[in-house]
């Protein structure tokens, strides 16, 4: 059992590292989809309570929304924006990997400092959640394309979600589903916005949008 939890957490860490080290946008979207599905497995394995109906429901809804719906919306936006790669990010890919390792060490250190309300099954869940949040933030600040920034936002949200899932036992189902709906709306609107930005300016480089005036 512990081996499977370890395996899951390591896979989630690897999806984070893969996200910041690959330049092809469709590959990034696929990585985020895999992360969503893996995240759906977290409450089943790591949750502190028994396998109740609501835990299973939560897991299935997570997998469907994060693993299928979001990637589909983003792939549609990608097709309409007609970009393939993230060219010239602010931080290069090899450097990004090294920054990722630094963030991982920071997350593990921070995770050990935090007092937890309830003991979780694995000591690595909290570091994983913190690491995922940091990677999302890093993807937002270090990339140019609007689409990668949306992915960063999604990953950051995944991190917060993982933090909650570890303690899903204590959290009302309504709150979880409400968060999922919020994120769904956000991604939906961001997809439309990317399409509109691209139609207006023929690119989705956010750093070139800084000169906008009325």
């Amino acid at each position: 059992m512990e081996l499977w939890i370890d395996c899951l957490i390591v896979l989630l860490i690897l999806t984070n590292l893969k996200l910041i080290s690959s330049s092809r946008l469709s590959a990034c979207i696929r990585v985020v989809a895999i992360q969503g599905v893996l995240l759906g497995l977290v409450p089943l394995l790591v949750g502190s309570g028994d396998l109740t109906f609501r835990v299973i429901l939560l897991s299935i809804v997570t997998m469907v929304v994060k693993g299928i719906v979001f990637p589909w919306l983003l792939l549609k936006a990608l097709r309409s924006a007609n970009v393939r790669r993230e060219m010239e990010p602010f931080v290069g890919y090899t450097t990004s990997l090294l920054v990722g390792v630094g963030l991982l060490a920071l997350a593990i250190w921070m995770g050990r400092q935090l007092p937890l309300p309830a003991p979780s099954k694995s000591p690595l869940v909290v570091p994983l959640a913190l690491f995922t949040i940091m990677i999302g933030l890093f993807a937002i600040v270090s990339r140019r394309k609007a689409l990668t920034q949306v992915l960063g936002y999604l990953v950051m949200e995944n991190g917060i979600y993982a933090f909650g899932l570890a303690f899903a036992h204590q959290e009302p189902l309504l709150v979880e589903l409400g968060t999922l709906l919020d994120v769904f709306m956000a991604v939906f609107i961001m997809g439309i916005t990317i399409f509109q930005i691209n139609r207006e300016f023929d690119h989705i480089d956010t750093d070139r949008l800084s000169l906008l005036k009325d």
Binding site: D6, V10, I13, L14, L17, S21, Y93, T94, L97, L98, G100, V101, L104, A105, I108, R112, P123, L124
Partner: peptide, 22 residues
């Protein structure tokens, strides 16, 4: 190629960090 090799380094650092802090 350096990116692939850095990837190998990252895998080993990850393994070492996880085994050290468990």
């Amino acid at each position: 190629v350096p990116q692939l090799l850095t990837g190998a380094g990252v895998l080993s650092i990850l393994a070492f960090a996880l085994i050290l802090w468990r």
